[in-house]
Computed example of a mutant assay.
Amino acid sequence: MEPEPGPPAQPVVVVFTGLPGTGKSTMADRTAMHLGAPAFSGDWLMGSLKPAAAQLAQLGREAYSRLYHSVLGGLLTRQLLLGQSAVLDCLVTDDVADHWRSTAIAHGAALKVVECVCSDVDLHRSRVEGRVRGIPGWHEIDWSHVERMRGEFPTLTGERLTLDAVGSPDSNFRSVCAYVLGAVGSSP
């Protein structure tokens, strides 16, 4: 097996998106470790906001979503101001990805979106029902939640790499490395 190429020569933002149970957190964490960059997880952010849930619920779903993406965008911007890469693990729309891409470009970085899917419904369901993430303040996701989310989030249309959880984690990670480093080059 070939080793993965080294980290990129310039900062890169890698956004992992997809429904729960498709492997996005696994790939995001692995990519962050490979790049030596932080992984900012939407689920961990939501768990940390849980103490303010009553006040946040008053915002309404759309305003809460804007707050969620704004906080992640702020963390992203801070990394870019430091000249460092970042990995984001969250659900995004094309509009959010485009906004973050503009932010990355303004700071001399590339932004790559990786959409994680699972084409095998039975496998996807077993992955969701069999996992315990243990995120403080955040609930475990069940299959009905995933099905609801599938209907609520629009399909991405922008440029992205699509990974299928049916593939092996090692093969998917090699695809991520090729996709990310193909745009920005790698360090010597």
Rank of each mutant, 00 (worst) to 15 (best):
K24S: 02
P51E: 11
V184T: 15
A52E: 14
E140D: 13
P154G: 10
L59Q: 10
S65E: 14
T157H: 15
L91S: 03
P38S: 11
G42A: 09
A183M: 08
V117F: 03
L161T: 00
D94T: 04
K24Q: 02
G83Q: 09
S126P: 06
E147P: 07
L91K: 01
K50C: 11
G23K: 00
D122R: 10
Q79L: 09
V166M: 05
A106N: 15
P51Y: 12
K50E: 15
P7I: 04
G42F: 05
A39Y: 00
H34T: 05
V92D: 06
I135W: 05
H145A: 09
S126V: 10
S175Y: 06
M149D: 01
W100K: 03
C118V: 02
H145G: 04
V15R: 06
P188F: 09
L156N: 03
A52V: 08
H99I: 14
P51I: 10
H107C: 08
M33N: 09
C118F: 03
V132F: 14
P3L: 10
V121Q: 12
L88D: 02
R133I: 03
A57P: 04
S85M: 05
E147A: 12
A165P: 01
T26I: 11
V117N: 02
K24Y: 00
A57D: 15
Q79C: 14
R30G: 02
V146C: 03
L80T: 02
R174V: 00
G21V: 01
G130E: 09
W143S: 02
V121E: 15
E2H: 06
V132N: 14
E152M: 13
A63I: 08
T103D: 14
V113C: 03
R78L: 15
F16Q: 00
L91D: 00
V180I: 03
S187R: 15
V14H: 04
L59G: 14
H145S: 04
G108E: 10
S70Q: 14
S48P: 04
L161K: 01
L49R: 06
F40V: 09
E4Q: 11
S186H: 11
A53S: 15
M149F: 03
G108S: 12
V71S: 08
G158W: 00
C177S: 10
T31R: 06
H99D: 14
L49V: 07
T155C: 05
V96Y: 01
S102Y: 06
Q84D: 15
G151V: 05
G185D: 04
L19W: 00
A104Q: 07
V176G: 02
Q10F: 04
E140P: 08
H107I: 07
S85G: 08
A32N: 02
A39C: 13
C90H: 07
D120K: 12
G73C: 12
G167M: 05
R133A: 09
V71I: 15
L45E: 09
G158T: 03
I141V: 15
D120H: 11
L76P: 11
G134L: 12
W143C: 04
D89G: 07
R131S: 14
G21C: 03
G130W: 11
L161A: 03
M1R: 14
L72M: 14
